[in-house]
Design a protein around this nucleic acid. Sequence first.
DNA 1: ATGCTTTAAGACTATTTTAGTCTTAAAAAG
DNA 2: CTTTTTAAGACTAAAATAGTCTTAAAGCAT
Lengths: 133, 133
Amino acid sequence: MKITRACDYALKVLVYIASENNKNKIFMRNELSKLCDIPDSFLGKILQALARENILVSERGKKGGFKLQKKPEDISFYDVIKAVEGDITINDCLVDKNFCNSSYGCRIQSILEKVRQNLISDLKKYSLEDIIS
Amino acid sequence: MKITRACDYALKVLVYIASENNKNKIFMRNELSKLCDIPDSFLGKILQALARENILVSERGKKGGFKLQKKPEDISFYDVIKAVEGDITINDCLVDKNFCNSSYGCRIQSILEKVRQNLISDLKKYSLEDIIS
DNA sequence: ATGCTTTAAGACTATTTTAGTCTTAAAAAG
DNA sequence: CTTTTTAAGACTAAAATAGTCTTAAAGCAT
Ligand code: SF4
Ligand code: SF4
């Protein structure tokens, strides 16, 4: 029951960008890597994922880099986790009904589904804004 | 963000034992393995862990096996997960303050700690009794 | 006492996931 | 057209998960 390192890095780097967000400044990967103490190439993958999921805008070439695509209050912890490691599953059967043959009518499954929904809605409650304000 | 197979197996086997709990019947590992469709040796490890954590009673020798040590309503999902895979961490820094050097005063950490506490208290709400009743 | 049956413990192995690197391509700016 | 920056994806290393196997110890039954 853990988030991955990549997720933690993503939160860290997004908080950094959000907190320095004076007039749409754009940050290079290299710069973010040093400031947030995240391995450069690994950060590359993470920033790419965040850009694909419309959390960051990326631009190439000279003067390129990354900036937020939305307001900090519109980027929740759930959005970040989902972008980086995919949806929260809790147990495979919750997301793949063919995973287990006792799946139909399983009451363990229905309780785990409740736990999952609560966790997701809890993670949606917190945004980058809550951190930087 | 997943529970392990071992945890799911543990829930499954405990629910089975709890539901068949006519007058303190004792179940052999072998029997449970077949009935719950869990690899026999792997189930051994799981049952051992549950016995160590005072969820099951184990007895050796002929007429040996496993039975519940508490009433089904006193065995929560949290108890089972904790017994089998250890405590829920969400992020390493929540459980090891030396893990990250930005740990002191980190606001990501304090939010993740809230999420963790909510998840734990949610998992404590549900017991084996909720499944078998 | 001594087999027989059952769990305990832990070393061992295989598979999958996580964490991270590296190389090549493509876009943008000057 | 060269430099700088990200994109994409193959690749690798390390760790965790999932599971097996072997040896020991405990309890019952004769
Ligand atoms: S036993 Fe129930 S909870 Fe476990 S995998 Fe099967 S359907 Fe899901
Ligand atoms: S950055 Fe904050 S949340 Fe992330 S590991 Fe460090 S202390 Fe924990």
